[in-house]
Design a protein around this nucleic acid. Structure first.
Lengths: 121, 121
DNA sequence: AGCTTTTTGAGATTGTATTCGCAATAAGAA
DNA sequence: TTCTTATTGCGAATACAATCTCAAAAAGCT
């Protein structure tokens, strides 16, 4: 399994790995994901209402961007920090999560080009 | 159906409404949620890996806080804004979502009190 | 009250991501 | 090569939120 530059769905992993191992089954993908997760190599990235994606656990604090056109999720390191004061008074903030939605670099090209595929571009 | 002060799960709605209508079934809850959603009165609030909660659609831009102890989700209006620049260069940000995790006012009381229930407190 | 329409409860069913079971295959050791 | 162990493919099974079915109950109307 090679390193990817963004969190991947089990299905994306299957698709990508299938290029090298055509008969690869989804069960094997899930089995390996589980194993890698148990040993702490990877961790799940869950966006609201979506299936888990997976990325290397070694990558530090960061957040995620999802492209609305191609659906891919990207990491970004930037973080405003100091979000503790946003919560209602009396609340304690232990962790935060920021998710940005928009168009990725590949997809901003032409706003109105509806002929391009909506996923996997 | 009365107004609640935070987004509720179908199950929470069932539990709360059952106090008034004991034999209420989950099907009715889902039916009404769907109807209210179709007419635009409520909208779903989805946290990563969790079932949708529902809140009034009229409440403007805001974000969510989840208490790790009782699991309840709360709204908060505060928002740092200007998150567009956080995304990688070349990306366009159309929307953002911030989720804070921690302890709610009710649950911060005693950090080490493990005798209290973990949900519904 | 009698009739019609809408809503409901309760259980069955669906959809779908994930996991299991197990025989087959591959990889390692000797 | 032969034996042993680990991994795989593939179809079946699971888990579970959400939806459907349909007879019963409730609400409206006259």
């Amino acid at each position: 399994m090679t390193t990817a530059e963004r969190p991947l769905l089990a299905q994306e992993i299957l698709a990508l790995a299938s290029e090298a191992v055509p008969q690869l089954s989804i069960a094997t993908v899930y089995r390996n994901l589980k194993a890698l997760q148990d040993e702490g190599t990877i961790k799940p990235v869950v966006l609201p209402g979506q299936n888990p994606r997976y990325e290397l656990a070694s990558y530090g604090h960061h957040h995620h961007f999802q492209c609305r056109r191609c659906g891919r999720v990207f990491d970004f390191k930037a973080c405003p920090g100091n979000l503790e004061h946003l919560a209602p008074t009396g609340f304690t903030v232990e962790e935060h999560e920021i998710i940005l939605y928009g168009q990725c670099r590949d997809c901003v090209v032409t706003k109105a080009d509806h002929s391009r595929p909506l996923a996997g571009c």
